[in-house]
Design a protein around this nucleic acid. Structure first.
Lengths: 338, 338
DNA sequence: TTGTAGGCGTTATCAA
DNA sequence: TTGATAACGCCTACAA
């Protein structure tokens, strides 16, 4: 494959018979350029297959036309959907988007942020249920930063999340189904703020509804503790499990099947996020679909305002999600005979 | 939030009492620097919170440390998984990764590629079942380009795909289940090469197995034609539907349910891709899991070699996928009584 | 409206 | 080993 040489603006200018400053002005539509010059430049650019070097352009103009997005794990439907929506919103506002998916630990996150910053991100979006507070503050110390679905509200840092009411609604639905003893999964990762606050909200709502609760540890990898905890929860009489994420819910159900238990006849299970296949009626998972579109739209809006130096007074925006009533939540098995 | 001013290398140099050239050498480990100077610079950099401006660095060194990834739709599990794996592989090789998810049409794709190129991508990975040949050639005319799962083999352009055998295997499984008349979905989008070749492979295998075939149109959006086609296929006596993607398979099953038909008792359905939730035993979809890890690893390897100017002799690499035997493929209903 | 000149933050060359 | 000095490709006063 023969590659065409990267043509520079000066070559376009020469071909058009103007100076490179005129070419620059013609190409980015700024300043006054005669119609003749503009057309000549545009034609030359097209003919030569010119592609502007955005690094040099940003550098020279010390402008910030790029937004950086840090997501937790691109392979997870929730984050994938989020990235796709953010992409759409930034594109619509003529920002370039650089996406990196950072790890679960602070080191990886800092390095990912450095990549973003190094490539000239003028604003950063952090969408990771496991973003470290230090990472968020690090980013924020350089450029405007908005968190999405992180569940961690820090003073001075914009945050967009799902409304607490949506988490409560799910817990109430479980209570209303008649369950009297419910297990809630809790991540042991100290960075999982989103999960922690979710767990806390579930627990609060359940307790208020006079439901007994049990905690089951969940971990991103290594199911051992989850399975063990699940087993003892069931032995303790739990009739429903509220998982913090759809992924965990599905793992729980699979484990139940393995034990010969049916869902929801024997045990009810709920998830959270409701992205992609997880909200398919075919799977029938009872979950809450996060308002990804609303959240990302607001986040990009907010970021744009901040990047433009505007002031906004928002301690934290919250949007309601949508309860998806699947088939995995039902009444508890009738134990009257016992 | 007060932002710290972006400190430049020259400031680090001053703080360390050396020239910026020395600071540069110390910071990127190139050239000879005295131990004393190196430590002073490193300390100054840390103290000042220095973050190197990669735009300027790349510009000055005219080096290509960045790989661009164009994926079709970040929200789709298959592409999400792909992006995540590519990220891991590039990171491991010390490349930065810029990801953009391009649209379904040529215009969007070209613009996305320009963004990548503009930010200094020295090599491009195209992972989109709908990448236009023009887009691929466009990218390839500038920098080394490797396609992943595009299903379009062009001379001179490296391609990594799933092995045809894996597609055949699925079709054979359908035939072996006893189906004598099978519908295959076919995208009407002229850019959907991957789907086209998949459809073709399905059809070929089915015909070789002496199975009658029918085509059902499928489209990314607007289910009308899919539903109508499905209806007439069923009326024509089809007992199994082979969809080109899991997403389509799920839609087909949902539609069957709506018509009061059971899967697989009345109609069998198979998918393709097997990413994330789609290969969960809970869903039970019969599909083929693409060898995403193998494909992305090979693609990044290949790209790295090309970027380094190396020569490789590969008309197209292919890796076998894994047949996932779910519950949506069964024997055809016994029509003996009719 | 146009061109000249200087600068954006790095790296690279070449004397010292 | 170090430090001037010149690129890298572009934008942008400023002057013409």
């Amino acid at each position: 494959m023969e590659r065409r040489p990267r043509v520079r603006m000066i070559e376009v200018a020469r071909a058009a018979g103007v100076s490179h400053s005129t070419a620059s002005r013609a190409l980015n539509g700024s300043g006054k350029v005669s119609e003749a010059a503009r057309q000549a430049v545009e034609r030359a650019a097209r003919d030569l297959g010119y592609v502007r070097d955005l690094r040099a352009a940003d550098l020279a103009s010390s402008r910030a036309a790029t937004v950086g997005l840090l997501i937790r794990a691109a392979e997870r439907p929730f984050y994938g959907e989020l990235a796709a929506r953010v992409q759409a919103h930034t594109e619509q506002r003529d920002y370039d988007l650089l996406t990196v998916s950072g790890g679960d630990d602070l080191d990886h996150q800092i390095r990912a942020l450095e990549t973003l910053l190094g490539h000239g991100a003028g604003g950063i979006l952090i969408a990771s249920g496991r973003a470290a507070a230090e990472a968020i503050e690090y980013a924020s110390s350089f450029v405007p930063t908005v968190t999405v679905g992180v569940g961690l509200v820090r003073p001075g840092i914009d945050a967009v999340d799902i409304a607490v009411e949506s988490e409560q609604e799910l817990a109430e639905a479980v209570a209303e189904a008649g369950h009297k003893h419910v297990a809630v999964t809790a991540s042991s990762n100290r960075l999982a703020y989103a999960l922690h606050s979710r767990t806390a909200n579930f627990l609060t709502s359940l307790v208020l509804a006079d439901v007994r609760t049990t905690i089951v540890p969940s971990r991103a990898d290594g199911d051992e503790r989850l399975i063990k905890g699940l087993r003892s929860a069931l032995d303790a009489g739990v009739t429903a499990v509220m998982a913090g994420e759809d992924l965990t819910a599905v793992r729980v159900i699979e484990q139940l099947v393995e034990w010969g238990l049916r869902c929801p006849e024997d045990v009810s299970v709920t998830g959270f996020d409701g992205a992609g296949a997880y909200r398919s009626p075919l799977l029938g998972l009872t979950t809450v679909a996060q308002p990804v579109e609303d959240m990302t739209g607001a986040a990009v809006d907010l970021l744009q305002t901040r990047m433009a130096g505007g002031r906004v007074d928002t301690a934290g925006l919250r949007f309601p999600g949508q309860l998806v009533r699947g088939r995995t939540l039902g009444p508890p098995p009738d134990l009257g005979g016992a």
